[in-house]
Design a protein around this nucleic acid. Structure first.
Lengths: 216, 216
DNA sequence: GTCTATAGTAAGATAGAC
DNA sequence: GTCTATCTTACTATAGAC
């Protein structure tokens, strides 16, 4: 049998991110030049990386002179730190806010929120996930704490389901890494002409997570 | 009930990569200065990114002068391109080489190889996955083709299992993204004192993949 | 807050000796 | 192949006028 590889998948996997749609959570004030800088930095850092974007690139995108940036942020690193803070706080808040009556429902809602955060704000997620190394350890520390707490939250749900014998999973830790990893990667491909809504992806990934833990 | 979050997970999620263990596939010649450059670039590009690593950083790590680099590679971008080529060709060869008597076994082996490639060569995988944006579209093109073909290979296996009614999955495309995504992320956390062998992770992730497609 | 101008440093890459 | 020396450009950030 000849495999027909012409049955095309959507064109995934751009070099870095699948959309140019600049979006930030509604809680973020985007007015004035500070907001403008944040929005343009989001796109540039996502597409080119922090070190691949110069102060002049960023200023040009904002239609200001590079010196003007320093009236709003003390350094380029502080702009990244602000984006990373916004991304991690929004993501963490979604995880913590996920509710459910039992382990199955808690896992479903937390995975849904995890995936939604990555599909609704892919640029922010790419910057948050892939540019952490460009922050000093001190400036990255708050984000690292939120990440660790989010992982633990997922681990607790899975352990709870195991102890109640609702879940049947070969390894709880690897289930955490698998479930969180598959959700994180959504940020890199979503948007590029992919015919799914964030909700559809989140629902299906939540089903996958329940299958991984043996609850479906 | 109070959730005990002190039941610690392994310390995952370094800023970028969980190991400093420089490894390249055995097919790669590492002798001489060219090999030395490749090995040092692998570590630096993985930890700091391509744009975060200067020609002088790289030369210093190799204990040579920066001008000497140009006797071995025509530009810094060519060094990255070579690492990206090695990473993608090794990964793709493993996928293509994965055999199996039926859909279940084919999925199991291809996921195992996918995960092994990321766990055995995490630095190479991080560079291959996260630094593609630093290559020009022309220099990134060969890698993009291998990526697309690998995805299609996975898609074909899943479609085959569905048509044989061995798999029961809500969405084949999202199964592809989930399975490949969870495996890719392994490169970012494996190594940091994680008490699993690459084989253990690969086996468990292969189980997860079979669960995702409803075959387990 | 925004500008012009520029300081001071670091970047990628090349020339030419050995 | 490796070096010293250097070119040219680009970088982050600051000074000071308006």
């Amino acid at each position: 049998m000849t495999i027909d590889r012409s049955a095309a998948l959507p064109d995934l996997d751009q070099r870095r991110v699948g959309t140019s749609d600049v979006r930030l959570p509604p809680s973020v004030l985007l007015e004035g030049t500070s907001g403008r800088i944040l929005r343009e930095a989001l796109l540039l850092f996502a597409e080119q990386g922090f070190h691949g974007t110069s102060i002049r690139d960023l200023a040009h995108a904002c239609q200001i002179r590079s010196a003007t940036l320093y009236a709003h942020y003390p350094s380029k690193e502080h702009v990244l730190a602000e984006l990373v803070r916004i991304g991690h706080e929004a993501h963490h808040a979604r995880l913590v806010g996920a509710q459910g009556r039992d382990s199955v429902e808690r896992l479903r809602t937390v995975v849904r929120e995890h995936v939604l955060a990555h599909a609704e704000y892919p640029l922010l997620a790419v910057v948050s996930n892939n540019e952490l190394h460009a922050l000093s350890p001190e400036m990255a520390a708050p984000a690292m704490l939120l990440r660790a707490d989010g992982r633990q939250l997922l681990m607790d749900i899975i352990n709870e389901g195991i102890s109640e014998e609702v879940f049947d999973v070969p390894d709880a830790f690897l289930a955490v890494t698998a479930i969180s990893g598959m959700g994180m990667r959504v940020a890199n491909w979503y948007g590029s002409g992919v015919p799914y809504s964030p909700e559809q992806i989140a629902e299906t990934y939540a089903d996958f997570a329940l299958r991984i833990v043996g609850a479906a």
